[in-house]
Design a protein around this nucleic acid. Structure first.
Lengths: 343, 343
DNA sequence: CTGTTAGCGCATTCAC
DNA sequence: GTGAATGCGCTAACAG
């Protein structure tokens, strides 16, 4: 056999003078042959440079690929930019690695999961993908699907209790029925610009965490007998300073100026702190601000942010575990409030 | 045909009453049949719910997978934590996406590329992987390999001129032959603890960027007729505050105290700024500090860091382009100095 | 332009 | 324990 031609199961079997079933069994089904025979074969293969059955062929045959596609909410850029998403990915990766499953990054802006679904065992979907057609595709695929921070029918999912978390943190921020409240929402609309949200009940994505958080805020507002003016909800398309600053500026320059800012992410809240300082206003005396997520950076800001902490890494590892164990239930993990100095 | 059984090329061909080659051609080789016939077939397939040839089988047959494995220097965690690595990934992802190639994350701590090499078209390797056995495996694989920030034989590679960049920035920092210089190196040794490096020439990895930067620093030191004491080089295993702070503290408490700190990453330099402030020392009067990388954060520090800027995202996109175009030359991209206020 | 056929590399049956 | 046969789903070559 030419040294350049890579070995195949067949060719190595012939070389060793055994049947190909035997070689296959040596690698895949130890119980089908004696320990001794197996070790001999494996040793010979190693010596000859055959590193085991071809994975692609094996996958085609078995219908098992050991790859899972991580469907990101947005482009890959988003994942590496957003600290919350990063932690999630880290959690997913650690569990998959332990199970010898490979991780394929799949952009939420792609137009079809078909391009990969033939060679992955399934999907872990983190948040609602920007291209909403993917949701429908994920709904109908017969591959395993686990969602995080949003739901698709009765597929396995992992999240926190966003509504109650939002309620709790908003209760902390709202002190009087006279408070002037503004909500800086994250992806409340399926839009890619910062804008106000006038028709609160009419969302594109009803199952989104943004929606749930909004309900929680609203409940806290009602609970405090305060009111939310209908031009005081903003939509921010991505959790970053660029888009957040626009909304924050609009909010701070609107009359009457809000004295409570409910932010759907810490990054948004941090932008708010920055703008508020720039205006020479005092936190929390003039304005109280609360965030959401509990990223490390938020505890190092001045003043440290009052926010909801959720363990994104755990969320990621749980998502991967749900995938591996083929679970199909919805799971929630706990959150807790971090009492900073911004309210 | 049962509605539940997914279509195959064969079954759909039979259903449509055409040969399977025709269906295959309709999807893959438009020139092999009339426009009209092709459209008819594609339309029928769509109507019946056949979304095209199975990718796994197609890949096995063609030997083309449209997946590239990105070999990370360390675990996935590293990638999402390090701002420089993040940018690189972003650059890679954007180009691959444009070419309909999927990105598989491959940890630099894995023990064998064999686990994936049967179903990827090749590897993009970012920096020297923590498990150095992978280097040898990448060297001998017959799959396409592109390396970034380090070299494997004559495979395609992308980097900056690390030696000259280090020389340039060090020249900025060193002002007199009396300067007391300390070097805070990044991965100079294949160790996972922070420690001093005594035998400068004896590196595990001779082709590493750390090595090249060290040579550049050394050249600048010689050029300034200054000297580097042999206990003034530190090895930091990962570019983060935890490991960096240890080295910084050791350096700052050694006698005579260094007045020039050459740091092999901005994150290390930022840690240094923090520790120096904590000691009540003045930058740059008491100590001058220079970094490497030019991350955004370094410009927002007080004082803003003097450093080398390299475009990591471009490095990533170039790496992907080298892969896509099957190039096999070494390429360098430019760097430039950022004159901050730390020296 | 169309249909037939022989693999891509493997795992699983079934008889031996 | 072994070896031959079948097919996972597809593409390329070739004949028509």
């Amino acid at each position: 056999m030419s040294v350049n031609k890579p070995w195949t199961l067949k060719s190595i079997a012939k070389e060793l003078g055994v049947s190909n079933a035997t070689v296959s069994n040596a690698f895949n089904r130890p119980d089908q042959l004696s320990e001794k025979r197996r070790n001999e074969i494996l040793a010979s293969c190693k010596k000859l440079g055959y590193s085991g059955p071809n994975k692609a062929a094996q996958s085609l045959r078995k219908g098992k690929f050991n790859i899972v596609a991580l469907v990101l909410p947005d482009s890959v850029e988003y994942m590496v930019t957003d600290p919350v998403a990063s932690k999630f990915v880290k959690g997913v990766a650690s569990v998959l690695e332990k199970n010898n499953v490979n991780l394929l990054l799949f952009s939420g802006t792609s137009d079809n999961i078909n391009s990969v679904s033939d060679f992955v065992d399934g999907f872990i979907c983190y948040g609602s993908p920007r291209n909403t057609e993917l949701i429908e595709q994920l709904r109908v695929t017969n591959k395993k699907v686990v969602t995080a921070d949003f739901d698709i029918d009765r597929k396995a999912s992992i999240s926190i209790d966003d509504e109650n978390a939002a309620f709790d943190i908003a209760k902390l921020a709202i002190r009087s029925s006279d408070d002037n409240i503004a909500i800086l929402g994250l992806r409340l609309l399926n839009s890619d610009v910062t804008c106000r949200v006038y028709d609160a009940p009419n969302f594109d994505i009803h199952c989104s965490i943004a929606h749930q958080r909004l309900i929680g805020y609203q409940r806290a507002i009602n609970d405090a007998k305060a009111t939310l003016q209908d031009d005081r909800v903003w939509n921010i398309p991505e959790s970053n300073h660029h888009f957040a600053a626009i909304a924050v500026k609009e909010a701070l320059t609107s009359i009457p100026r809000p004295n409570v800012l409910l932010c759907m992410s810490d990054l948004i809240a941090l932008s708010a702190l920055q703008e508020i300082s720039a205006l020479g206003l005092n936190i929390p005396n003039d304005i109280r601000v609360v965030g959401f997520d509990g990223i490390d950076e938020a505890q190092r800001s001045t003043p440290p942010l009052t926010t909801v902490h959720q363990n994104s890494e755990e969320k990621g590892s749980k998502a991967a575990e749900l995938f591996i164990t083929k679970a199909n239930h919805a799971e929630q993990i706990p959150y807790h409030l971090i009492q900073g100095k911004t309210c």
